[in-house]
């Protein structure tokens, strides 16, 4: 793929719940290796957009393409297999499984080995090694065999990302990865995000503006379901409309 071709693109995506228009004509393009932040006040439709991109919701109009292929009608699981993966704002994990089991499951699903019922789990040695390497990368190796429900909250947030990484995404959508994590710990979480492979395109929702300006190379501001502006961080920072509509709410004075 050439340099400029976006790996993920939405074209004129629309979604309405009854009379409420939650997504109005949203067009985005993520090039390979993008670090793209999606910001906007509560209820702007950020998570809805993620749900539309990942196939959890069906858009009323518009197109979503991955690697140039139209995936608008493709089921969610198939999009993941093609390299479009998300994490959840509210932990959506396997509470009764351990991290090693959870990540191993995701690796096996990617390798299309999860349906094999005659091979012992430990027979998937390569997959086990890969799962453990992912946990190690996210510093979860010490708690690899502890039930997910007993993990600290911050560790559960990391496991969210570990599960997504196990699918080997080309495009990773992070829905408020640091949601609920104390400020002093969210830096550690973003250190993990900063260390993601350079060729992986990342779209993330985040409320902490310091983190957004630190990690994003491009920012889209969403207001009331529509793109208000999309630009580089330094332009967003000084844009009066953004200050008024978004930053103004949390940064009075």
């Amino acid at each position: 793929m050439s340099e400029g071709t976006p790996v993920l693109r939405t074209e004129g995506v629309r979604k309405r719940f009854g009379s409420l228009e939650v997504s109005r004509d949203i067009s985005l393009a993520l090039p390979v290796g993008a670090r793209h932040a999606l910001i906007g006040p509560n209820g702007a439709g950020k998570t809805t957009l993620i749900n539309l991109i990942t196939g959890r919701l069906k858009p009323d109009a518009g197109r979503i393409t991955l690697d140039g292929q139209d995936v608008t009608g493709v089921p969610a699981a198939e999009r993941v297999r093609r390299g479009l993966t998300r994490t959840f704002q509210i932990n959506t994990l396997f509470p009764g499984l351990t991290p090693i089991e959870s990540v191993l499951l995701a690796v096996c699903e990617r390798k299309q080995e999860a349906g094999q019922f005659w091979r012992r789990l430990t027979g998937h040695a390569e997959a086990v090694d890969e799962a453990f390497a992912i946990l190690k990368q996210l510093r979860l190796d010490d708690v690899a065999t502890r039930e997910t429900r007993h993990l600290a909250y911050g560790q559960q947030r990391l496991l969210e990302i570990a599960l997504a990484l196990a699918t080997r995404p080309k495009v990773l959508l992070l829905d408020e990865p640091a949601a609920g994590v104390p400020k002093d710990e969210s830096a550690a979480l973003f250190a993990v995000i900063a260390a993601l492979p350079a060729d992986m395109a990342v779209l993330f929702i985040e409320h902490d503006m310091n983190l957004v300006f630190k990690f994003a190379s491009r920012i889209t501001v969403l207001v009331a379901g529509a793109v208000l502006v999309e630009a580089k961080p330094e332009i967003i920072r000084s844009d009066p409309r953004v200050r008024e509509v978004y930053l103004g709410q949390g940064h009075h004075g």
């Binding site: 990942t54 089921p75 969610a76 699981a77 198939e78 993941v80 297999r81 993966t85 998300r86 959840f88 959506t92 994990l93 396997f94 509470p95 009764g96 499984l97 089991e101 959870s102 191993l104 499951l105 995701a106 096996c108 699903e109 990617r110 080995e113 999860a114 349906g115 094999q116 019922f117 005659w118 091979r119 012992r120 789990l121 998937h124 997959a127 599960l163 997504a164 196990a166 699918t167």
Partner: peptide
């Protein structure tokens, strides 16, 4: 043999959180 396989793990995954399964690429 079944429950100790990767298939058995996938079944437990469905029981634990069927919402997450499509998000890890599982049909």
């Amino acid at each position: 043999r079944i429950v100790n396989s990767s298939f058995g793990l996938a079944l437990t995954g469905i029981r634990e959180n069927s919402q997450r399964m499509p998000a890890i690429g599982s049909v």
